[in-house]
């Protein structure tokens, strides 16, 4: 079966649209809210959704997602409960779902068991911010075996590494917009044409994330890429509105998607 991520980018390309990838921390503040937000986001234009698996020590996250992780963990979120959520979601949506998580969560769960569960519950890919390209063998065999994509990241510091990483990328390449951790930035000054020049001739979509918080930034970033990724700005709405957040999240997602429709 074709991976849903590949199918998604093919359809977007045919329509001349850019991808909107959105993020929520699973179980923040509870699973009902996550379910509502995910369905609402897909309904209002999200093409791919990342479910954040909360970790006690999320070193790549800024304060917003740190707090969301804490709220979720306090509510008793576990990986097994997240798989249960995915099972429910899969009765209602066939769009790509990714897990964004730290390597220790996979490792402790058991790498083989984890990817087997991903396949069973129809997760399409994983993003593991503390698993750099050099350490990809930690999960490569098992991910491949079960057809789950490990989405690689490149950063403004990646330089010569961009082409090497892109050539082995599947699904899409996650381009970190600027130095630092997740969270909104007033301005993104990275020179993407230089950073992403090595991608010429490499056939993998790239999406820019970290710090994109409104439609203007989304539009600007989409000019350099095949899509944009928005996380903290959505999580912030959930932080403010709690279990009532879904409509506002949907409205915000619609505003982000608008300039990406081409």
């Amino acid at each position: 079966m074709k991976n849903r991520i590949d199918a998604c980018f093919e359809q977007l390309k045919a329509k001349g649209e850019k991808a909107l990838v959105t993020f929520v921390t699973a179980g923040d503040p509870d699973f009902d809210t996550t379910e509502k937000c995910v369905l609402e986001m897909f309904d209002k234009g999200a093409d791919i959704i990342e479910l954040g698996v909360p970790f006690s020590d999320p070193i790549a996250e800024g304060p917003v997602i740190q707090r969301a992780s804490l709220r979720s963990l306090k509510g008793g979120t576990t990986l097994d409960k997240i798989f249960e959520l995915v099972k429910k979601l899969r009765t209602k949506t066939d769009k790509p779902l990714l897990l964004m998580m730290y390597i220790n969560t996979i490792f402790r769960y058991g790498t083989e068991k984890f990817f087997k569960s991903c396949a069973q519950y129809q997760i399409d890919g994983v993003i593991v911010p503390d698993l750099p390209f050099e350490e990809r063998d930690e999960i490569a065999v098992q991910a491949e075996k079960y057809g789950i994509y490990n989405i690689y990241l490149v950063a403004p510091t990646s330089a010569d590494r961009v082409a090497v990483i892109a050539r082995e990328s599947k699904g899409f390449l996650y381009v970190v917009s600027s130095l630092g951790v997740t969270g909104t930035r007033s301005e993104i000054t990275t020179d993407f044409s230089t950073l992403l020049a090595p991608l010429d001739g490499i056939d993998v979509p790239c999406c820019i994330g970290f710090g994109i918080s409104d439609a203007q930034q989304a539009k600007k970033m989409s000019q350099f890429s095949d899509g944009v990724i928005v996380g903290s700005a959505i999580v912030k709405i959930i932080e403010q509105q709690g279990s009532q957040a879904a409509p506002a999240v949907g409205e915000f997602v619609a505003s982000l998607k608008e300039p990406l429709k081409g």
């Binding site: 070193i59 950063a155 510091t157 990646s158």
Partner: peptide
Amino acid sequence: GGQYVPETVMTAV
């Protein structure tokens, strides 16, 4: 051991 750090710091490492 190993080098399990975000891509952003890999060049620094």
